[in-house]
Amino acid sequence: MTTTTLGTAAPVAVAAPTPRRRRRGLAPGKRLPAARLAGPLLLLVLWAAASAAGRLDPGAIPAPWTVLGTGARLWTDGTLPTDVLTSLERAAYGFAIGLTAGVVLALASGLSRTGEALIDGTVQLNRAIPVLGLIPLFILWLGIGETFKIAIIAIVVYIPIYLNTHAALSGIDHRFVELAEVQGLSRLQFVRQIVIPGALPGFFVGLRLGVTGSWLGLVVLEQINATSGLGYMMFQAQNYGQSDVILVGLLIYGVFGLVSDSAVRLIERRVLSWRRTLSN
């Protein structure tokens, strides 16, 4: 009976079922295309515009095209390729040694109680000493050549790799240990099939910190104690007031950092593909 329509009655304010509006999403939404490049590109545009408008002192901040021109000139006269190669070599050696040491020490300390007793405290002690504070001592020990630079970079790299890998190794879920016992896994199978894959996410966190650390160490070493390399080139440029050369050096450091970090991320995504289903 309530369904009969009321002939010509005055329009009643019926509480019409309002269409259910979708709730506003709180997630940031879809990624913008080339999102990681947008910010740096905007900065570049602002820099170029300010230079073109004559708002920047060319002695302090030269225009982008001046920097590019200087880069091209240094490249063709052969000094830049030599410096870049020297720097890359240092970083690569230091990183390789640091990576190996970090992983080996983390495994030794994460998989055996004796190893933990011997290694973990020592690394923690090492971590507490600012690595750059070791530079004078290392110069005395190893001379001012390549060896001490590589040694410092290796130390900067191994610490975060060790710490994160060790934390991941000792944080393996106890339930998985029990599972391995029930399934009758041997010690080796347990390490290879459960411990190492389980520790990989932590290792990659350490790896990314280590890669960044290797460049950081390089910059400091080359600016204070070098006779060649990118930092040396910039140090010289400072003496002659060549801000464009300094900017060339900084840009190259930046590109190195960005490329190496992206490379690690790419490997991480490949290796940890099982995690992708989680973040989606």
């Binding site: 339930r175 998985f176 029990e178 599972l179 029930v182 099939q193 459960i194 894959p197 389980g198 990989l200 940890l272 099982w274 995690r275």
Partner: peptide, 14 residues
């Protein structure tokens, strides 16, 4: 002997 636990205990990386 096989054991089934309350949680499935599948290794997420396999």
């Amino acid at each position: 002997v096989s054991v089934v636990f309350q949680d499935s205990r599948l290794l997420p990386w396999r």
